[in-house]
Amino acid sequence: MAVQNENLLDINGLKMHFPVKSNGLLRRTVGAVKAVDGLSFSVKRGETLGLVGESGCGKSTTGRAILQLHRPTAGTVNFDGKELTKLNGEAMRQMRRKVQIIFQDPYASLNPRMTVGDIVGEPIRVHNLRTGKEVRTRVEELLRVVGLNPYFINRYPHEFSGGQRQRIGIARALAVEPDFIVCDEPVSALDVSIQAQIINLLQDLQGQFGLTYLFIAHNLSVVKHISDRVAVMYLGKMVELAPSKQLYANPMHPYTQALLSAVPIPDPEVEKQRQRIILQGDVPSPLNPPSGCHFHTRCPIVIDKCKVEDPPFQDYGGGHFVACWRATESQEQMEKKLQ
């Protein structure tokens, strides 16, 4: 057997454009929403890569494009040596055993007409991982693993609370014994006290089964807590990617800096001391993104070059990737702006 590649997932030039059709009878294509517009990154075996950004930045679309739930417009998604964008039919179905997803909305992600046993058992039956009575035994085992009592195997989703339903969704993803799980905002819809339960559970499962996560969220505190490395997206592009501690201690992209400073910290004394970078205006439409660097319309330290030339996403040392013309001087310039 060949030496295993350090990267479990390699993504190159990933693009996901959704055509916009006119309303008329002919339904001509009049434009495209560039939800994901050229992403290149990799996920290492056993790590958690966090993916943050505000709504509409394309982070969820990225997750779905990796799973081929949306077929990417361009680019490659290489998973464990296999090119997912080229897989079809049976080969694709077999791949689904290795790559799984956990959804944001614990209410929409479970079929209301199926019992918990059927929901968690379905992947097992579909892939013939167990037969006959063993399916039920396995489902009970999975429920126990995610902290649910197997006693509830015959109940329906609406009989559970949000946090419990999220556990059911996790059990379903685990049922196929995957290597890689896309966690798409798995705690955003949950109450604060329940969020921590699910975060801890995800961390436990990672240790127990050697999972690799792509953790998509808009909550930076959560992403920082759970991730080894964090990537920041803005309008379909990645603007910064760095080891977690590095990114929070030394953010080099002005957008990351603004994002970090905007997160409220649950400590009144800290809050009083903080200086916020308040970005002006709203995120532009992905239907018609700005020229050059997509962030230039809101960037406090924009220069002329930013408006015409798209900055490359390059490594500034130690795996700290930034797409900004002023990456090395951005913090200094930002400080000056705040004075």
Binding site: V192, S193, Q197, S221, V222, L260, V263, V270
Partner: peptide, 10 residues
């Protein structure tokens, strides 16, 4: 419990 269950950015 609430204060202990939220991750802090800082």
């Amino acid at each position: 419990g609430l204060l202990d269950s939220i991750p802090r950015l800082d």
